[in-house]
Simulated assay, not measured.
Amino acid sequence: MSQICHVVTTWITTNVTEPVENWVSQQQKQCKKWPWPLNWICQMVMVLVKVIVWITKAVTTVVTTIVCTVITLVIGIILWIFSTLIDAFCQKCNATAWVKYWFLTLGKIKYISQAPSRTVPGSVDYVFDCGCKRDGGPRITVTATTDDDAAVKAKEACNKLC
């Protein structure tokens, strides 16, 4: 059965605010104006002030989700119901076999694996199995930069081989 899959990438940014406490000493300018014993004591005892600085951090998280929609199976089940009725009235039509072959069996192209390309820098080698025969089919390798590009190249290559 064929599936249509889409990769959905979502960037979630969250702002996190944290307090940071600092003790800052401040000397009053007033100490200089006071008479001798008091200004000396004033300078010795500096005013300590607690300063709270709020730091905001942006935390970004990447969420990748693969969303697959099974389309051919749903269509195949609906057509299988109608094909069963057609075959009940027309034995030579063989509509049920046609529906099973085109909609209820595995798709023609099946993804096998991928690896970084050894020949083209920045590309990926994708391996697909062309299912043009009941027992499978030829295995092909295509080089592409994206999954969508690889799927198009695989369809073209399988159509030429099958």
Rank of each mutant, 00 (worst) to 15 (best):
T96E: 13
Q3S: 13
V49M: 09
L73K: 05
I140R: 11
C162T: 06
K110N: 12
I55R: 11
I4K: 14
L104V: 03
W34Y: 12
V152G: 04
Q28G: 07
I81M: 03
C68A: 08
V70C: 13
V20N: 07
F82E: 06
I109R: 04
D129T: 05
D149P: 06
C68F: 00
T145Q: 13
T13F: 04
T10R: 12
D148L: 01
P19G: 00
K29L: 11
V16Q: 00
K57D: 05
Q28P: 11
I81H: 06
S25A: 10
I112M: 15
R139M: 11
K108G: 12
A97D: 14
V120S: 10
M44E: 02
I77H: 05
G136H: 01
V70G: 09
Q114D: 13
W98M: 11
C90E: 08
G131Q: 05
G131A: 11
I75V: 15
P116F: 06
K155M: 15
W98I: 04
V24N: 09
W36V: 15
K133I: 10
F103C: 05
K153Q: 15
Y111T: 00
V47F: 06
S25Y: 11
F82H: 05
M1C: 11
W36P: 03
N94R: 12
A88P: 00
A95I: 00
W54S: 08
Q114S: 14
N94F: 10
Q91N: 09
V124M: 06
L48V: 07
R118C: 06
A88S: 13
E21N: 07
T72V: 12
S83L: 01
V142W: 02
L79V: 04
K160H: 02
I77T: 04
V62N: 03
Q3C: 09
I86E: 06
I78V: 15
E156Q: 15
A97N: 13
S113I: 00
A154M: 02
L161N: 01
C68S: 06
D87W: 00
C130G: 00
W80H: 02
W34D: 04
V63W: 06
C90P: 00
